[in-house]
């Protein structure tokens, strides 16, 4: 409304056909959005059911103005996995109260090339064997990055239940360094054969798992993360921005706010 008033005022004052197209938002199918424009990570905790870890050195997880997909802020996730086979972890988490079916998405930025000798995960879907028992949490799907012999970084999906990579519709999409890229998943957490998980990388279908049971309970956790082991050089930093949980697909062209 305020924007429209401004548009009308500007146009009338100018008495000219200046381009000032007002917008009218008729609906929002977004369930939750994080743009970090508050300059902190509070969006991941409010409303309740999320959080972030860790909160201290050597890993760093904080809102930052060093990079931003839109606006001024993004989240900076830095890890220092210096010990062999010991993972570093910095994760933004949404858990509890998530719908049985939704689209999860975020924009990522890898500022410099990374050599991955073990694993590097940036996006996770998790489950609980007992919905109200946090000690029963387990992994389901990871969206990972790996190094190719050429040095290029590529994107792939790992299924913890089969301890293997999901067959991909698009093989080894390249993760750009120094550019924002979009990762999105559709996840229907059904306990019967109607379960469904689909992953997109920059809008391109990467993997699709349909017709299988997913989590053992309706409980869902989604993480935008920087988790890895045997990475170099350290610290390994990524930026996350414009994360969303939506009833409909967001895609790289999706709009999160007016």
């Amino acid at each position: 409304m305020a924007r429209n008033v401004r548009c009308a005022a500007i146009a009338l004052a100018a008495l000219a056909a200046t381009a000032c197209t007002p917008h009218a938002q008729l609906a929002s199918e977004l369930l939750w959005v994080s743009t970090f424009e508050g300059g902190d990570l509070a969006e991941w905790s409010d409303p309740g059911g999320g959080g972030h870890t860790p909160q201290g050195a050597p890993s760093v997880l904080a809102a930052s103005t060093e990079q931003a997909h839109r606006g001024r802020y993004a989240a900076r996730l830095s890890i220092v996995p210096t010990m062999p086979d010991v993972q570093g972890l910095a994760a933004l988490m949404r858990k509890s109260g998530l719908p049985a079916e939704a689209y999860y998405s975020a924009w990522y930025y890898v500022p410099s090339a990374v050599t991955i000798e073990k694993f590097w995960t940036i996006f996770k879907l998790r489950v609980r064997a007992v919905a109200d028992d946090m000690n029963t949490e387990a992994e389901l799907y990871d969206a990972n990055i790996r190094s190719q012999p050429s040095g290029a970084l590529t994107f792939w999906i790992y299924d913890h239940r089969i301890a293997a990579q999901i067959p991909q519709q698009t093989s080894d999409p390249v993760v750009p360094v120094g550019q924002w890229f979009h990762v999105e998943a559709f996840y229907r957490n059904a306990q019967d054969s109607t379960g469904h998980a689909t992953f997109w990388f920059n809008g391109q279908l990467v993997a699709d798992v349909d017709g299988v049971a997913m989590g053992p309970t309706p409980w869902v956790e989604w993480d935008a993360a920087n988790i890895g082991a045997n990475l170099s050089p350290v610290p390994v930093t990524i930026y996350v921005d414009d994360a969303a949980i939506s009833r409909t697909r967001v895609g790289p062209a999706g709009i999160l706010e007016d």
């Binding site: 197209t21 009218a24 199918e29 999706g254 709009i255």
Partner: peptide, 18 residues
Amino acid sequence: VAFPSDLYVLPRGVIGQA
């Protein structure tokens, strides 16, 4: 109308025009 409003739905974007 000089500048009819774009109608949009989040997150899909513009879906029409007034």
